[in-house]
């Protein structure tokens, strides 16, 4: 199965190359990323796993992990240098089948406090754009509040910034802000971040 999987991955890399030929990145140039990299999410949406998939397929990052719900202690299990937090709550599963957003925000606050203490580079990513934007007070917006103002670098799918929210956050925090047209373009950002 591993051989098969490798072949599959190779195929997708070719496809990615074709798609990325028309990639569109704008705003601030990508900042330098560090390793080991920990990829996680805010809100349990699918974005972090999508990012993991893209990071994996670029082949640019040798040492990275993915954790769905890291607690502060998890940030110390390895000498991580960069924490990539993909923003966005899950839309599937309301009530008993969904997440409790209050608990999730508490976890995120604790995680960010620990990351700051450990002086990790925090990269906030809104990979799915306006799909994971919502009304004030909604789960998506609260996740953004919990992470984005503390990020050292922000990558946002352009249609997620139609109201200028990320411009305002970046202006206040001074974090560079890079825009991508499509989620697929994130591969190019990762390649640039981790170019040797």
């Amino acid at each position: 199965m591993n051989v098969a999987r490798t072949c599959g991955v190779a195929g997708v890399v070719v496809l990615l190359a074709v798609v990325s030929a028309s990639a569109a990145i704008s705003g601030a140039p990508p900042v330098k990323g560090q390793q080991p990299l920990l990829i996680t999410n805010a809100g349990q949406g699918p974005g972090a796993k999508m990012s993991r998939l893209l990071v994996q397929r670029t082949g640019a990052v040798a040492d990275f992990d993915y954790l769905a719900e890291p607690q502060p202690a998890d940030l110390k299990t390895k000498p991580y240098k960069t924490l990539m937090v993909v923003l966005g709550s899950t839309a599937k599963g309301l009530g008993a089948s969904g997440i409790t957003i209050d608990q999730e925000i508490d976890r995120l606050n604790a995680m960010i406090a620990e990351a700051k203490k450990l002086k990790l580079q925090i990269v906030g990513v809104l990979l799915e754009g306006k799909t994971r934007r919502g009304k004030p007070g909604g789960a998506d917006e609260r996740c953004i509040d919990a992470i984005a103002p503390f990020a050292d670098y922000l990558v946002v799918k352009k249609d997620g910034n139609e109201d200028g929210r990320f411009d305002a956050i970046a202006k206040k925090s001074g974090a560079p802000l890079t825009f991508i047209d499509d989620a697929m373009d994130f591969s190019e950002v990762v390649k640039a971040m981790y170019a040797k």
């Binding site: 309301l94 009530g95 008993a96 919502g134 909604g138 789960a139 917006e141 609260r142």
Partner: peptide, 16 residues
Amino acid sequence: LIFVFNAVGANVTVVA
């Protein structure tokens, strides 16, 4: 209305 309240982060079980 469940979706409307969900969008602003309300606990939908209480809302229902």
